[in-house]
Design a protein around this nucleic acid. Sequence first.
DNA 1: TTGAAAGCGCTAACAT
DNA 2: ATGTTAGCGCTTTCAA
Lengths: 345, 345
Amino acid sequence: MTITDVARHAKVSRQTVSNVINAPELVREGTRRRVLESIEALGYRASQAARQMRTGRSRLIATRIEPAEDGINGTIHDRFLHGLTESAAGFGYRVLLYTAHDDQSEIAAVDDLLAAYEPDAFVLTGTHHGDVRTAWLAERRLPFVTFGRPWSMPEGPSHPWVDVDGAAGTAAATRHLLDTGHRRIGFIGWPTGSGVGDDRRAGWARTLAAAGVDPAGLDRTTDDGVATGEKAAGDLLDADRPATALLCASDSLALGASHAALSRGGGWRADGGGGTPIAVIGFDDTSVARATGLTSVSQPLSEAAACCVALLARILDGDEASAGEDGSATTRVLLQPSLVRRQSA
Amino acid sequence: MTITDVARHAKVSRQTVSNVINAPELVREGTRRRVLESIEALGYRASQAARQMRTGRSRLIATRIEPAEDGINGTIHDRFLHGLTESAAGFGYRVLLYTAHDDQSEIAAVDDLLAAYEPDAFVLTGTHHGDVRTAWLAERRLPFVTFGRPWSMPEGPSHPWVDVDGAAGTAAATRHLLDTGHRRIGFIGWPTGSGVGDDRRAGWARTLAAAGVDPAGLDRTTDDGVATGEKAAGDLLDADRPATALLCASDSLALGASHAALSRGGGWRADGGGGTPIAVIGFDDTSVARATGLTSVSQPLSEAAACCVALLARILDGDEASAGEDGSATTRVLLQPSLVRRQSA
DNA sequence: TTGAAAGCGCTAACAT
DNA sequence: ATGTTAGCGCTTTCAA
């Protein structure tokens, strides 16, 4: 089933069929309809390989699939990937997967892919300080978008990115806790330097400051995990001036925190028990949060994925009309997360 | 960077370079080394598109990415996908994604993909009774493997598949509970007819039978979910002859069950409280199980993915030598799950 | 063992 | 508005 078959069926030349597909305005109405009917009748679809040879475009977007590392937080990558695949299809692109375990091996994987499959663009996730991947891609003038801000851009021209405003998320969560009457709102986050983590902490800190609450002794730093979260929460709850609410940088930490609250008789699951229950809020709205009734900050992942694809489509399919003055005006998207309220806060 | 550049660099004809890559035994040692050096030096890799035009092989494996539906159990698909991508790369294949929301739309997606990208094979997940996808693919003689048994094959020739022996998993879990002294071991599973669910229930039932334990009043059927699991577990725990252990068809159900146990003071998290704690075991060893200390039956997902790829590679790269008498001897793989013991049982 | 010729299906440039 | 020509990079004959 080739373009020649269609041409024969529609009694036109091969080229006319090609024109109907790629430059319909060049073909007379009647001819076009006849060709389209033939295409329909024969169920023809252009071979991507042949097309790629000619045009140099593969209509493939490559992205890395992560090992679902930590388990709880890994699930968000899954949702992002699904959104990406769906949105890409809408623009006539397909998603090609590769694996890697660090920046360097990802560069190697990208290089490999490039030579063989020539993906038109890349979507990078998990940007971090000192990310060498973006520079590598930028140097080679390869089209790409990151899901995640460039956390350490030494000035210079940036690249297109989509991200979720984590600080706004924790700020909203903190505000909610303040509104519920809490003053001693603890924060359990990751060690300084992680970009994402610092951002989330910042939203909490600035909201507390704006409300005139002293954050002294309310900030805890720990690696991600349920056990570490439980320990840090224990710290905050057993302090001289104990926290009454715990905001966490991840659902893993929050799950641990709610265990700590529970074992001290102040958890939201400990029905009754006297006094206001200890509030706990997580981040990412993972399956665990949904399943356990944990209030959590939710990232609009499908939307983020859709933005990534839209950005790429604009770059690749060169919609000149929408390019800003400097061409970079709308290549940065910061999406707002939302607080999903459940039983825990 | 084409094969011509390499030929020039190595001072041989284009064809010889191609032979070095595709039929090394035809090329004299010295020439081959020289060509390989040129390939290395230039960083050449064959264009997949051009190769595909000639050979009709895309070295692409297509699979569906699911919407991470239920949340908790969806994460296993993620892990499978990662394994698939990694294993495929080992055989020189890449994984191409598509989405669909039911059998019919999946067939449409596959059909679409086929015409444009010509993937060499498909990996189908989530087989079920009355699955129309496999028949569709088989009719067209398209290479594919399913992760999941054909649950309703009306005799006839089957297709290659890889699955995990769910019954063996629940059997092992039941045996473990029996060994720990439990006799009243309840099972909370999905409504009859789901293949996977029936299988898991069967392992429990036959192990109880083998131990001479009467299963009367110990079997509960409910849709998947945390809330439904909690309710069913409540039923079993509040019965005249209450269950002392709860085996569940999923981690979602198990999570609900452990909540029920907890609220009745018999949960494994209720330290002390007198008497043996109520044991709970889940299925799939998801992040939730890991995070909450839930004992769960673990599926070897990377291995399953590796088997899928290996099966496909054998079919596609036609390793005649390893083909059995009837060619189907080793196209069905049933992997054994393992019980991951944690605090809950 | 190596090289030359042909052609996979498509589209960009040019000719009609 | 439609048709003709050429060639993308590769591999499969076939010839040397």
